[in-house]
Simulated assay, not measured.
Amino acid sequence: MTARDSLRAHLLKHRLAGPDVPTPRQNNLRHYRLFAQGDPKALMGLEPEPRRDPDAVLRLMAERVGVHPDPRYTEGPDTIDPDLTIAALDRLALLLRRTAARRGSVLAGTGHPTKLAGFHGALARALEAAGCPVHTPARGVRFREPTPDGDRPRYLDVVDRVLVVRALDGPDRPDRPGRPGRPAVGELAHTHSPLPVRLALTALADAGHRPPDLVLGDHGWLCGAGRLGIPAGGVADCNDVAPFAAEADGLVAVVVPLEDGSDPSCYRALSDYVLQRADLAPYNS
């Protein structure tokens, strides 16, 4: 069995791609409508002009993700084409290989810290081992993020060379006291916001660094970097239109269609595959 065949079987077994991924059709269509309506959470920092209507969004996602193309199909399981996933992982590997060849600087961040920090971290550490500076700026910087329940205080932290967002209040308020110069430790927070990457890039500039040569991430990390003209690559689920729209519009280099809410261990095979294809030995901590 080839590496590609083995990966395809892994994607199907863990429902990371295939005909019955965990995100149902009705959820996908709701998010497609929100993107078409310009909902800020769905846009993830983009301001696309002209806007795509819901039918155009569905066509985009059918082409780039492999979801069911018929608008009359409104309920039930939906699809991520595993061959599109693998092809995008190959493109991501090429992006990493080119970055490593020129010893480019890297910034990694995720809006899915409990699921995807390990995937992004494996790529970032391998690039660092190949001589690429990996930046982790703005640790401890606080900001407020709009949520359906109102603005919530957040701050940036670093997990495994990857920037993440932590909560400062509510049921996920900090549960460990801080140390001098360090904030209390709150629960990891899921976010679609582009604000974290903007804060990180501002901190880099304030420290006298030029923008990174590559941003690795998802959600607002991809879209926020891409809108600023910074090369970016990462993953997005079948209900996340914005990264795929940014890729189609030439703002983001590579987006891998992938179920993004599975057990973190499921993504190890994917990072290993990318690093092998990039001629970067998988980094084992």
Rank of each mutant, 00 (worst) to 15 (best):
L84D: 11
L84A: 15
L84Y: 00
L84S: 13
T85F: 00
T85K: 00
T85M: 00
I86F: 01
I86L: 13
A87K: 01
A87N: 06
A87Q: 10
A87R: 02
A87F: 00
A88I: 00
A88F: 00
L89T: 07
L89G: 02
L89A: 07
L89D: 03
D90K: 04
D90Q: 05
D90R: 03
R91S: 15
R91W: 02
L92Q: 10
A93R: 09
A93Q: 11
L94S: 05
L94G: 15
L95F: 03
L96I: 14
L96Q: 07
R97K: 10
R97C: 07
R98W: 00
R98C: 04
R98Q: 11
R98N: 10
T99I: 02
T99S: 10
A100V: 13
A100M: 15
A100G: 15
A100W: 05
A100H: 11
A101I: 05
A101V: 07
A101Q: 13
A101Y: 03
A101K: 04
R102K: 14
R103P: 01
R103Q: 13
R103I: 05
R103L: 06
R103Y: 08
G104F: 06
G104T: 09
S105I: 08
S105P: 08
S105Q: 06
S105Y: 01
V106F: 09
V106M: 12
V106E: 11
V106R: 04
L107C: 06
L107Y: 09
L107Q: 03
L107E: 05
A108R: 04
A108C: 12
A108W: 13
G109D: 03
G109C: 03
G109P: 05
G109F: 02
T110Q: 08
T110F: 03
T110C: 10
T110D: 07
G111L: 04
G111S: 07
G111V: 06
H112Y: 14
H112W: 08
P113L: 14
P113K: 05
T114K: 08
K115A: 13
K115L: 08
L116R: 00
L116C: 04
L116V: 02
